[in-house]
Computed example of a mutant assay.
Amino acid sequence: MSSAIPEPDDAAARRAVSPVRCYPVSALPQVDWNDLGRALETLRPVAAVTVPPRDGRAIEVPRGHILRISCTEGSQVGDLNLFARDDLAEHFYSGKTRALHGSHLDVGDRLWSGFPYLRPMALIVADTLGWYGIDADGGAVHDVIGTRCDPYTGRLLGGTDYHRCCHSNLTRALADATGLPLREAEMHVHDVLNVFMCTGFSRTDGSYFMKASPARAGDHLDLLAEIDLLAVLSTCPGGDCSTEHSSDAAPCHPLRMEVLAPEPAIDWPEPTPVPYDRSHGR
């Protein structure tokens, strides 16, 4: 719908104002890539799980270990939740991660936990799709702008019930990993890192779009656990998300989660939560 209000005389000048980055990030904790790079040269697998198509699985990742998410058979998108292993209340905060690092993540970016913790949970240390960049449509991979496909939006927009969407897959996987009832586990499922998904915002109307993932068999994303993690991953029912999601129509493939131990071991210091005294705001 177009606006009926005419542009003011200074419309061009208003649009030409230079942008300001909301969060200067120079104060964020820095990474010694020399020491880390040497530690990552040899990785030894210690645990693994395959996530079947249209399903979810969980795996524990000790601090200082690598979580590798891999396409094993073909292009496939995954939705990732992260929790502190011993405290589900501390989980990945996609919105603050987006504000600090941008709409799509790459090597060197961190995945941050929510309030009242706000500390790095994981650091991206390798990405075989790092070459992709931003394409002509404004699309890029590994986004933190999408929420996750879910049965509630499906019911709202299409009047249908679909139970193999990522929200449902994550709920079942978290319940299986923790022993929580499904209803209670669902309350902990949160917005995701869309692994391998290619997304952006339309230049014409600002709408969120997806397009075929550039991932192929053998592509992987590596995350260094900065705290002890419980990682929960769903294989999106949209497959490579080139056409649709929340249906059984798209070809889907498994994803693999591996826990890799660097040799020698990384003595990674556990980051502390932001020391804000919440009583001051009451």
Results as ranks from 00 to 15, higher is better:
168 S>I: 00
193 L>S: 03
222 D>P: 08
115 F>D: 06
123 L>G: 11
159 G>D: 05
163 H>T: 03
166 C>S: 13
28 L>A: 08
99 A>D: 11
230 L>I: 06
237 P>R: 03
189 V>P: 00
236 C>Y: 12
237 P>V: 04
67 L>Y: 06
180 L>N: 09
174 L>F: 01
277 D>M: 01
80 L>N: 08
122 A>V: 02
115 F>Y: 05
65 H>W: 14
63 R>W: 10
233 L>V: 12
254 P>L: 06
209 F>R: 08
37 G>L: 05
162 Y>C: 02
65 H>Q: 15
164 R>F: 06
229 L>N: 04
180 L>V: 07
216 R>W: 00
227 I>K: 08
225 A>F: 07
248 D>W: 04
154 G>Y: 04
198 C>P: 00
115 F>T: 09
240 D>E: 05
261 A>H: 13
168 S>K: 03
91 H>F: 09
63 R>T: 09
77 V>T: 11
60 E>N: 13
270 E>T: 12
25 V>F: 03
117 Y>T: 02
133 G>F: 05
154 G>N: 13
254 P>V: 09
81 N>Q: 04
79 D>K: 13
278 R>I: 02
225 A>L: 03
165 C>T: 02
62 P>I: 15
202 S>V: 02
162 Y>A: 03
130 G>P: 11
27 A>S: 14
8 P>R: 08
198 C>W: 12
196 F>Y: 09
13 A>D: 15
30 Q>A: 15
149 C>T: 01
39 A>T: 10
216 R>M: 06
227 I>V: 14
223 L>Y: 08
248 D>C: 05
99 A>C: 02
17 V>D: 09
121 M>W: 04
9 D>I: 10
275 P>Y: 04
202 S>M: 01
46 V>E: 13
190 H>T: 06
21 R>N: 13
59 I>C: 12
126 A>Y: 07
203 R>F: 02
242 S>H: 10
276 Y>L: 11
72 T>I: 14
53 P>D: 10
23 Y>L: 14
44 R>N: 14
240 D>N: 14
139 G>F: 01
83 F>C: 11
239 G>N: 12
189 V>D: 02
186 E>F: 00
22 C>I: 15
274 V>G: 08
69 I>R: 08
220 H>S: 14
228 D>H: 08
67 L>N: 04
79 D>F: 11
49 V>Q: 07
205 D>S: 04
153 T>V: 12
221 L>N: 10
152 Y>P: 00
